[in-house]
Write a protein that binds this DNA or RNA. Structure first.
Lengths: 233, 233
DNA sequence: AGTGATTTTATGTGCATACATAATAAATTT
DNA sequence: AAATTTATTATGTATGCACATAAAATCACT
């Protein structure tokens, strides 16, 4: 009947998670405050704080000053998707990475693009389209618009060897961005590029990247059929 | 020429981010160690540590003991998707939530399902199919298998009023899970349920949930055409 | 009763210090 | 030269303490 001691925040976290999973603390319950837990666990309040903060970050606890800490009623699962450079993504799967530039030109973008990028309607942008391959089979089609006002050095690049995906990440700083996942039917052109049937369902990732108040780049990545983005919860 | 002081970890974080964005610290660069930064910022090392840890969590810094902290070469963007209960998701958009149970029966699942759930092949599971609606239009089709060995109370539920999505989250604890995003073409049945054209490209979320070593539930959520999952980076 | 000021309380954070740990670099041995 | 041991160093974390801050609860006053 020895009370176990919890010397580090990870073990406190584990115990807290155990209690939540075992329903010792049920959804909606107010759990004891940090000082009491520290006393019970035989550690400093700081340590309990660290552990509770970690659990709260994962969405299983709701914490509010003075109100205390309670078990989340409906834990919002937070799926964290790691969006890496496509070359790394492929190489990490143990596959051979291939790259092919399709087109590269300066052009006035369609309204949808200039709007999204908050760029003047008749302003020329750099338009790069390319294909990423894994073991010589089409993996993802990249359709990208780059704002030369923000990344003038981008105009000097051919993107024939290094993809815009990779070049930009290395050379264009950004402060924030947004990303959207959706499904779309392959147009005949997309089908040809990705070597799939027309109207195949494709996973699309649209990303818009900002540096301060100006848009750096807007990209759509279309993945081949049956492509999955996976993560653990 | 006063040296600004950084009294809290957030301001240190902001300054660190600024230096990275401004390329004062370039990708791959080793940054000064915590003690030096603490000295420079006029705060405790603990505070610098907290700030650097936060930045490292976001993927912009790589930290290794003894080796030091360096700016990530290719920052892996971490898109965090909040997967909430569908009802909340819809209500938070300010829409009216509707729910309709389609079928509910105990059945032997197809091989693909029993395999994924690591359930014996001829073992009966609870199969629930339902439709979630937003403002009376189909929003997501839920196709779920529940393991009654793990959640026996689940057999007593009708799922006519409360969706399995919501009921399970409230009543079935889980330790971990995996989630996959993909695109799929609507079958004729799915098209009918979701009121869309056959072969429409649909976004699919597949989730597999575990409690310890047993599978709690496996669910596929099919969203209506043009549905987007968005998040900020 | 209603309104506003005040107290209380739980979390949030900063700091100095100490020690733990991982990984590298240096020294030593084989 | 290779292998092993030892020292060094940067990050990782535990602790006690102090104070900050948000929000609930209470009290005071009209």
């Amino acid at each position: 009947m020895n009370k176990p001691s919890f010397r580090n925040w990870q073990s406190v976290q584990t115990e807290v998670l155990r209690r939540i999973h075992a329903r010792e603390w049920e959804p909606g319950d107010l759990i004891p405050n940090e000082s009491d837990l520290a006393l019970e666990f035989g550690c400093a309040r700081t340590t309990v704080n660290r552990a509770l903060r970690a659990v709260a970050d994962s969405g299983l606890l709701d914490r509010r000053r003075k109100a205390g800490t309670r078990v989340a009623e409906q834990p919002v699962a937070k799926a964290t998707l790691a969006i890496a450079v496509i070359r790394n993504e492929i190489e990490e799967r143990g596959q051979y990475y291939g790259y092919r530039l399709i087109t590269r030109r300066e052009a006035i973008p369609p309204l949808a693009v200039s709007d999204a990028m908050k760029s003047p309607q008749n302003h020329t942008l750099l338009h790069v389209r390319a294909l990423h391959l894994a073991d010589d089979t089409p993996y993802a089609f990249e359709d990208r618009w780059i704002n030369p006002k923000v990344v003038p050095e981008g105009l000097a690049e051919s993107y024939e060897i290094v993809s815009a995906n990779e070049w930009l990440l290395k050379h264009a700083p950004y402060t924030h961005g947004e990303i959207a996942f959706s499904a779309t039917s392959a147009t005949s052109e997309e089908a040809e590029i990705l070597c799939c049937n027309e109207n195949s369902a494709l996973l699309a990732i649209d990303r818009l990247t900002w540096d301060g108040s100006s848009t750096v780049t807007k990209v759509r990545l279309l993945f081949g059929p049956r492509h999955q983005l996976r993560t653990i919860l």
